Simulated scan of single mutants.
Amino acid sequence: MSNTFSASNQIGTVFTFSELVGSDFRGEMNALCWQRNLDGDFNEIVAKLRIKENITEVYPEDLIALRLSEEGNRAREIILNDLQLLADFGASPSLNLLKCYERDDEFDFISTDVYSFHVDRSPIATDTYLCTYYGAASDIVSNTQAEQKVLIPEIRSKLKELHNGPSEEFENFLKENYFDLHYQVHEDVEPINLGLGHLWRLAVDHPKQQVLPCIHRAPVENEGEYRLLLIC
């Protein structure tokens, strides 16, 4: 990992799954990384899976049905084990083969798609888990490096025009349309890339959360390359 990554107060590093799910977020730390250097040929798995639409969910039986080399089989066992660990923990992991996500280009002054820096929100105490096995990996930034877009005066003014309703309902309008989840990163900020093979836990905005939610974004995919992503 880069010095920027390892030196960040935002990120805690662990070396087992039990540490990943059992450690508490605190202070500025709202991202935990189970640091791993994975063996196996994940490219072979991606090459042999069939993508049916822009986002294709891959099930364990789809992986098991693949005829793979020894290196490909090693990669498959890692993925199946990750899925099982998360399921046994009580999460609902999904393995996705991604061509791209849907873009939100309805408004030219604010975007609400996952390529925009954003936080996740949940009504219950939960966290986001993700691991990129192949392809471009997600980015995060610290909460001091970004500002809620709805607080930027020119964006807020345009959102008020869009709302065109009673002022006391404006904040609910922002939440109902997910505008308040999105952030503008400050100039000259270098996001931290989450890399390949590491299993991450990111803090989510929910009533019992003790830290700020983790600001993150999906990457622009590499030309002609799919992503293989575990997320829950």
Rank of each mutant, 00 (worst) to 15 (best):
M1S: 09
S2P: 03
S2C: 07
N3S: 06
T4V: 14
F5R: 05
F5Y: 07
S6E: 01
A7T: 10
N9H: 04
I11M: 01
V14K: 00
V14R: 00
F15K: 01
F17G: 01
S18T: 05
E19L: 00
L20H: 01
G22D: 01
F25L: 04
R26G: 13
N30K: 00
A31F: 08
W34L: 12
Q35M: 01
Q35A: 09
N37F: 10
D41Y: 13
F42S: 01
F42Y: 09
E44G: 10
E44V: 11
I45A: 07
V46D: 03
A47W: 05
L49W: 04
I51R: 06
E53I: 05
E53M: 10
E53Q: 13
N54I: 04
I55A: 12
E57Y: 13
Y59H: 15
P60R: 07
L68N: 08
S69W: 02
E70V: 13
E71Q: 11
R74H: 09
R76V: 02
E77A: 03
I78C: 11
I78L: 12
I79K: 02
L80T: 07
N81V: 10
N81H: 15
L83D: 08
A87S: 15
F89M: 09
A91V: 05
L95M: 06
L95V: 07
N96H: 11
C100M: 10
C100H: 10
C100N: 13
Y101L: 02
E102H: 08
D104M: 06
D104C: 06
D105C: 13
E106L: 15
S111Y: 05
T112P: 13
D113H: 09
V114P: 06
F117C: 12
H118G: 11
H118S: 08
V119G: 03
V119I: 12
V119W: 00
D120T: 01
D120Y: 00
D120M: 06
S122Y: 09
P123K: 07
P123G: 13
I124Y: 13
L130P: 14
T132H: 00
G135K: 00
A136I: 04
A136R: 07
A136D: 07
A137F: 08
S142T: 15
A146V: 03
Q148V: 10
K149A: 15
E154P: 15
I155G: 09
K158G: 10
L159S: 06
K160N: 06
E161C: 12
H163C: 11
P166S: 12
P166E: 00
S167V: 14
S167F: 03
E171R: 04
E171T: 15
K175N: 05
F179Q: 04
D180P: 14
L181E: 12
Q184S: 15
Q184D: 11
H186I: 03
H186W: 08
E187S: 12
P191F: 08
H198E: 03
H198Q: 07
L199A: 00
W200C: 02
L202M: 08
V204R: 02
D205T: 11
P207N: 02
K208E: 14
Q209D: 11
Q210K: 15
V211H: 04
I215R: 08
A218W: 04
N222P: 04
E223M: 00
G224M: 06
G224P: 11
Y226W: 14
Y226T: 14
R227M: 02
L228C: 04
L229T: 03
I231G: 12
